[in-house]
Design a protein around this nucleic acid. Structure first.
Lengths: 201, 201
DNA sequence: CATTAGTCTTTACAATGTAAATATGACAGA
DNA sequence: TCTGTCATATTTACATTGTAAAGACTAATG
């Protein structure tokens, strides 16, 4: 339960910090119970506020989820920029690690039917993240006869695919079958190494 | 609107072919209006049947969607096997083309919160498809020092990522920026070529 | 102090999925 | 042909969802 810094003034109207409280509450439910648990009434119940209290801040549920996804893309861009993202592999790793450490949020960020992709703030944050990946892809060796957009799409597709498969648990059988055994993060790191060294993958 | 072969007997009870009619109706709505339109009452309304008519055949909505997703995996496996899937690239292309030609269905097949992954028929059909991809990945040149599961995950991740990005429309800006201009299917084919020839991508 | 604007609640409503009970008709055995 | 049996489909009822509309309350502004 997230509250305003000063206990909410007199327990009456005006929460004081409702916007961030709703986002924090929704995010907590998102990671602990999955995207399916993101019901308006469940979120507002946790903040002890009426369902329609979202209206002034987000309009409706879709607006709230869109704001949450926007926040996710901002964090993703930050993760790619900072850390040790000094190479193509590190940029890809940052993308994948963000996904598996925030699985619910990452899923929401790409759920076109749950959010409003035409929202300016969302669209901006999303394309900022994508542009960062494009930058890294552009620094890679370009093969002759291919449009630069191909290299960008491939770079993005590879990390995105691994991230989604990992989140959905579809990689677990493969990871468990490794001998000697390695964990998921090691598996993913080696997968990126493999892509950049092996010719046919 | 899908009906029994012989017009339904007397417009009374007993549709005669309800199971396949429901699946066909659901699939049509899925591709024309997206996964968000897959409401139980909307589906049964189109077949002119009461909402609870799904119970004898599928149990509930989740059961119906699971059966639909199962059908999808069966078709995917068929698409990979047949056609001109005689190489690693063709197997990957079959996967991607199936996805962009059945975007709604493909999305549903990976929506863990809308279907029942523990359903035996579904689990079987799904792992059949995955095993096919693994087979092709196994035939590719193995780089030294990597577990074979890494090669499988990378192969799968690449095609899956491109498929998802294409379905979500996130590749469209890149495709439109190509010069000379190529369409989406050409773009994806070249992307697969690029992955198998270029070293770092 | 009065007004105004923003925040939150209340009430009401249409729509969803499904449990429980009921009705229907196909079909097998006499 | 009658009779029982059983899967199939309907009906009714209910809890839950998101939100439009109208009202209550508070903070800020003049």
């Amino acid at each position: 339960m997230v509250r305003a810094t000063t206990e909410r003034s007199k327990e009456g109207y005006h929460h004081g910090n409702l916007r961030v409280a709703l986002l924090a509450s929704a995010r907590e439910m998102l990671e602990t119970q999955g995207v399916g648990a993101l019901k308006l009434r469940a979120i507002t119940r946790q903040v002890e506020v009426s369902p329609m209290a979202v209206a002034p801040h987000f309009g409706n549920l879709r607006g709230l989820l869109t704001a949450l996804a926007t926040q996710g893309f901002e964090e993703l861009a930050h993760a790619i920029k900072t850390g040790k993202a000094r190479s193509l592999k590190d940029a890809g790793l940052a993308y994948i690690y963000f996904a598996i450490r925030n699985p619910g949020l990452f899923t929401l960020m790409f759920r076109g039917d749950a959010i409003d992709r035409s929202d300016p703030a969302f669209a901006g944050a999303a394309s900022d993240s994508f542009a960062l990946l494009d930058t890294w892809a552009g620094t890679s060796g370009k093969a002759a006869g291919f449009a630069p957009q191909i290299a960008e799409a491939v770079m993005w597709g590879k990390v995105h695919g691994l991230a989604i498969l990992a989140i959905d648990g579809l990689l677990t059988p493969l990871v468990q079958a490794t001998d000697p055994h390695i964990d998921l993060e090691q598996f993913l790191e080696q997968a990126l190494d493999y892509m950049n060294t092996a010719t046919s993958g």
